[in-house]
Nucleic acid binder design. Structure first.
Lengths: 236, 236
DNA sequence: CCCGGTGATTGGTATAGACCAGAAGTGTGC
DNA sequence: GCACACTTCTGGTCTATACCAATCACCGGG
């Protein structure tokens, strides 16, 4: 079929992974071992592995090796179920680590919310896991007036839950953007992956039912851990 | 800053591209030329170029060279504006080439629409362009009863327009899924890109206002040509 | 002036080997 | 039994080179 050797290799690896997934417990043998088994060089082998990485079948943890990717998380950005809820609803274990809490300006957030560039925000940066694999990092930029003591009380719980229960905010209007990206060195390091790993960038600008800005957030997902799903039912 | 040379190279290329975009008319110099200019090998140079490719700044047309990528098309999958409409609305030129018209079974489509595996469909495969760059290929699988003479009359126009105007179908309920992918050798060839190029796969199952299945479609986009945008306003 | 042949150019693929830095595993001494 | 230093393993990066096949630019013939 395909003339290129690395494409044949890709197929052979695919079946090999399929057959040995259980025995390997999720981690592939070392590149040098695989290269020898297929009588080729690491360069060519890595080209084949990168192919499978692009498909989302395997991924690598920086300098630790290649791993078989778990099933993608199904995610509907149009609903406002929190991360913890929909991860659990899919029978998986969510976890969140707070990386930073601070007050800062952030012009991109200000612009997305229609505020002046020097508008200060309460910034929360956190990393989120599914079954102990870090799948995304995100930054949240909350308008201080909407959640005055946020930085003092926040400890990793659902932000949307807090906004609703403590401050009574309706997250009524959302403007969402999604683009594929290569993870920045910073994001990559926080996710323990190689710089430039393929990712998906999701941004949201959120307003309440009176069009007052509430918050802006930027999510950086590993590209292979996500399946976006939207269900729409009849209008127009 | 970044230790790795190819990451420095990436930055240098970024500014170089910025400065010379106009003069180069969208096409980068040959790899060998660039490699020599930066006193490195093609292998390393390609690593840096791949980095920029992942970011969506440049792309390659198979065996023809590297090109500067145009701005992403903004696309809202929740609205039912046709491709031609929203491309023009962004001041750009749409074009469609029909690649295939046939009657066939297609189990994945059948399953997505809740029909038996041996359900026949009217299959349309087409390639779509923005400003003469092929940005996606797609397959449409239409339930024959909903559009009897489709294969005879179809000639590249808007399918949704046809369904609405000729057969009076309401495309009321949609189930949409989006996942990142590596383009299959077939898709890649039809888009004139290297096999395994990063892409975005968008699937839709469409039902009318009485929940009768109408059609299923599979789009394969080049990852760098798309920005998904969704605007939601208040309910709940 | 159009067409087709031809050769140079260019990206795609592959080999062989090397060094480095981070991660993991090992062992030693307290 | 635990903390820490050391060694080994592994992926990440890089050099230098080679050949092939598709493409492109050029040129000559009809």
């Amino acid at each position: 079929m395909s003339d290129a050797y690395y494409l044949q290799l890709t197929e052979q690896l695919r079946t090999l992974i399929d057959q040995n997934a259980a025995q390997w417990k999720g981690k592939l043998p070392a590149e040098r071992v695989l290269a020898e088994r297929f009588a080729t060089t690491r360069v060519t082998l890595r080209q084949a592995l990168s192919q499978l990485e692009g498909e989302g079948l395997i991924h690598r943890s920086n300098r630790r090796g290649w791993f078989i990717s778990p099933a993608r998380l199904v995610y509907d950005p149009t609903r406002d179920a929190g991360f913890n809820d929909y991860v659990r609803a899919q029978g998986r274990q969510p976890r969140t680590a707070v990386l930073k809490l601070e007050a800062r300006v952030h012009p991109p957030a200000a612009r997305a919310l229609g505020l002046p560039d020097d508008q200060p925000f309460q910034h929360i940066r956190r990393r989120r896991y599914v079954d102990d694999r870090a799948v995304l990092v995100e930054s949240l930029w909350v308008v201080p007036e909407r959640a005055p003591e946020l930085l003092d009380i926040y400890a990793g719980q659902s932000l949307w839950g807090l906004l609703r229960e403590r401050w009574g905010h309706y997250l009524a209007n959302r403007s969402i953007r999604m683009v594929s990206e290569a993870l920045s060195p910073l994001d990559a390091e926080e996710l323990s992956v190689a710089p430039g790993t393929a990712g998906l960038n999701i941004n949201r600008a959120i307003f309440d039912d009176q069009q007052r800005p509430i918050e802006y957030d930027e999510e950086h997902w590993l590209h292979d851990s996500l399946c976006i799903s939207v269900e729409l039912s009849g209008q127009r």
